[in-house]
Write a protein that binds this DNA or RNA. Sequence first.
DNA 1: CTGTTAGCGCGTTCAC
DNA 2: GTGAACGCGCTAACAG
Lengths: 337, 337
Amino acid sequence: MKRVRPTARDVAELAGVSVATVSHVVNGRGGRFGADTRDRVLAAVSELGYAPNSSARGLRRQRTDQVALLVGSIGVPANDRLTAQLHEAADAAGYGVLTLLVDSELRARHALDLLHRGIADGAVISDPYHCLDDDRLASLAHHLSMVVMDNTVAPDGFDVLRMRELAACAEGLDQLIGGRRRRVAFIGHHSDLLDTGRPSERYTAYTQALERHGLERDERLVVSGADDRSLSYWAMTGLLQLADPPDAVFCASDRAAVSAIWAIRDAGMSVPSDVAVLGAGNIKEGLITRPALSTVGLPHLDFGEVVRLLFERLAALEPLPGREVVKEWAFIPRGST
Amino acid sequence: MKRVRPTARDVAELAGVSVATVSHVVNGRGGRFGADTRDRVLAAVSELGYAPNSSARGLRRQRTDQVALLVGSIGVPANDRLTAQLHEAADAAGYGVLTLLVDSELRARHALDLLHRGIADGAVISDPYHCLDDDRLASLAHHLSMVVMDNTVAPDGFDVLRMRELAACAEGLDQLIGGRRRRVAFIGHHSDLLDTGRPSERYTAYTQALERHGLERDERLVVSGADDRSLSYWAMTGLLQLADPPDAVFCASDRAAVSAIWAIRDAGMSVPSDVAVLGAGNIKEGLITRPALSTVGLPHLDFGEVVRLLFERLAALEPLPGREVVKEWAFIPRGST
DNA sequence: CTGTTAGCGCGTTCAC
DNA sequence: GTGAACGCGCTAACAG
């Protein structure tokens, strides 16, 4: 369906040189050329609109100069931040970034397949939920510089970044409950509430907090909705309409917590006196709610570490050991608890 | 730095067949094989963890089975929706999706370069702001199935999707102003307020509405902040602290409008009686504000058309003419005006 | 400084 | 049904 793309050979013929010379000029190799030769080549390049074919180049050089970013969902502030930082570093290191959305089993399989087939030289796997079943993950590391953000997997030829959320969540929940709250709700991500046998740390913290404070668990207070700002608003609204509504709520995302605060205010109730709210993620928006949102999360939403690990690995000449970095979440008390 | 990846040749040797047979089996070609042959090949494939190299395959087949999505920013609901729909269609058509972030001149150049080099068979260019200067855009269409979402470019070997925003914005602004509002503010995107010589339709609509209603323009009422939920909150808060605060505000994004509503309520004022608010984009969240957000945008946030154009083009055997689809924005009145 | 040669890994003829 | 040979477009190594 399309006109054939010009190749180095076309350029070479037009410029009256060999393809090797074209390659040399285009790639800036080989020091100085005869100015006329170089100009003729460049003129031919621009006349034909030549650009080296990336497949051929990749095949020959055994590298693509691309890094892949696998994210489990879009519209999540933390992923947006990671994306931005990865792009920043990639620009500096001369790499491009290919973002792959991995929000289902099928897409995870497809994305790992692409990595396996050498579509990129390196990868950051941010939300490996759907990827972990596949033990190709480990074998990928033989061919690929890889950083995985996960708490359950061990470094094995690739680096791992862990986020310790549990302690901060526990601390936050302790303050949320504060000895006087009796009915504590949880608005979780869809995946939190799936029974995967691998409960999230946030959900675990919730469960443990109930026990620690001797509170009875009420399944009606555990709802989904943290993935979506609207859903969480309606979820909170629904909770408030219970005959015995919650007096505190832990939201698995700050986005949900912000919506929850609105829902509470719109219901004519007050935060934190009627219902206390604790979020998770520490996004900037937590500062514009009234009251400001208490949350757990990284003190600074920063993924410089991940990015550094990846590009160190890409630059390394020898195989690097699998490294492990642990980032500790903190409780950031503000007005909503 | 890494162990070499197994090739078809390795598989062939292990299975005791030729590389051609490996290729046939892996790609499901060539009808039936001796069941034993096929099994031996598949066993070797899985033992070695073989996957065909994508560069070599791309080079040979002259296609990558990938489509690229170029977006100008992340965290924008419309882009998120487009991303989701493109993935959906790509899965169905057997393509993968590579997302490229194009939020600066440099990255635009880099992304177009990649397309030029044949990294994908097709592309959707969503926010071509940074791409348009480059006339490679047209030449790309010779090699690439392409859909561009823009109002200023003409189809030329590629398809164009236009969004007519102006009329709906005018209608919305008319109701926003409603004969009695005297001081109408505009919270724009950063790019709206840059003097690019190509003002956005939303900004144009604002300017024209002021004139139409005989309102004096006050530069202090034109502020940036629509790109970010926090920024827009502070922007609105600042506007309310003016000696002569606005009694109406048009926000270039619904996200900003939602924040603006909260800023107004937090300032102890009421929407719409003290300050009326009009958003743009028609996101779901407009339904959870109190009052619900009046907005302009697509009646249904749907990019099925774009996606359809792309895959039609990819499937076409003959060159297709450049097609043009126009989607009309509508004014969606709710409570905030 | 420039040209020649070889081969990256794969899919596709065409023989057998 | 299977294998041998070719070339996709490019770059690295070497020759001149």
